[in-house]
Amino acid sequence: MRHVFSYRDKHYIYDTGSGALHACDEATARILRGEPADLPDAEREAVEADIEALRRAGLLDAPETDARPVKSHELKALCLHISHDCNLRCRYCFADEGAYHSVREVMSLETAKAAVDFLMRESGSRKVLEIDFFGGEPLMNFDVLKETVAYGKQEAAKRGKKILFTTTTNGLLLDDDAIAFLNEEMENVVLSLDGRKEVHDAVRKTVNGKGSFDAVIAHIKKFVRARGDKHYYVRGTFTAKNLDFAKDVLFLADSGFDSISLEPVVTDLADLAIREEHLPRIEAEYEALADEYIRREAEGKGFLFFHFSIDLEGGPCLQKRVSACGAGNEYLSVVPNGDLYPCHQFANDAPFRMGSVFEGTIDPVLREKFATSCLFTRKGCEDCFAKFLCSGGCSANNYHFMGDIDTPYPISCAMMKKRVECAMHVLAERKSREK
């Protein structure tokens, strides 16, 4: 499948079968779209010769794979809900402000160790494993977090395995001890900050109803200064209240953060939710952000915006592209009492309980449902140019908005497609400068 799109005065062709990206002039774009193009015969013949040459090289209209993912039942990653409590009360929190629609509690060391043992046992021949500390606010259970890391490293080493640890934190408890520990032990750290003070404080409030911006940004700046060249993301959320979110991304960049992610909110709160009528504004905002992103990069003042980062040359294998995140099969969430769920967004959703780290088994029916769900079972993805870059959307979002893990949520799709086009344009501009 070929996707011909324009960005300002630039024209591109993305070939889904081969994964190749090409630039072309307007007349060629019109011909490729099957639209009338007023061209002299000689020029038209030259364009058609170019198209035929790309076809022969396998870079246009290339056949697409229909290879189903190999169903590995070896566990790869656990999300440890080490705290179902939080010191913030963010209005849009999918996790019910940390409590996950249940009691506020933290995970015991016994449960955390049982989860590590479960991962060791269920990971089979895998050598590279992952544990993500999540909440709620994980640093509210910092002692257990630290002891779990030590135990995980010890148990993995015994088996010739390695665990990559990640923590997602709101930054409120990032003191010197936490900064030193996370910088030493975490492969990646995700730090929640929504951008401008007024935007952040409008939704991310403390238990006492006060804005958290001033405390959080000071802690996160201190953390990032100590982080060196290790991975981190300052990760924010935008809502219907700040559709001018490019200003928030640029605010974060101007605050000294060079690895940034800003995600559309997932909520059913009427005043915050992203709706279809917001899409034109959001798409224009992504373009405005891309323009500034390119300008800063050209001046040597660039930063990494997650959604404008794309690897078309050394990206993941097809197996990965069609099997996506692995939730419910290769990746599971563990809540404080040890129960298992397909992922953090299904936590404490009773019909999706898949067992317990203490039972030592995974519900075979639910696991099969998630293991067989892939790009080729997603409804509507077959005609989408972004399918091998997206893998069919988030199962949890699909389920919560559409009632089915295999039915993508159209608003998420629209934003994904726009971001992919922006990322391709950013890549093309970078390549152009390098030449």
Partner: peptide, 20 residues
């Protein structure tokens, strides 16, 4: 005129990459 911007080095394989 068409100019190729990027093409994959090679496109079904190992599980070493990150898991959202």
């Amino acid at each position: 005129m068409i100019k190729t911007i990027a093409k994959p080095t090679e496109r079904v394989t190992c599980g070493e990459c990150r898991s959202c």
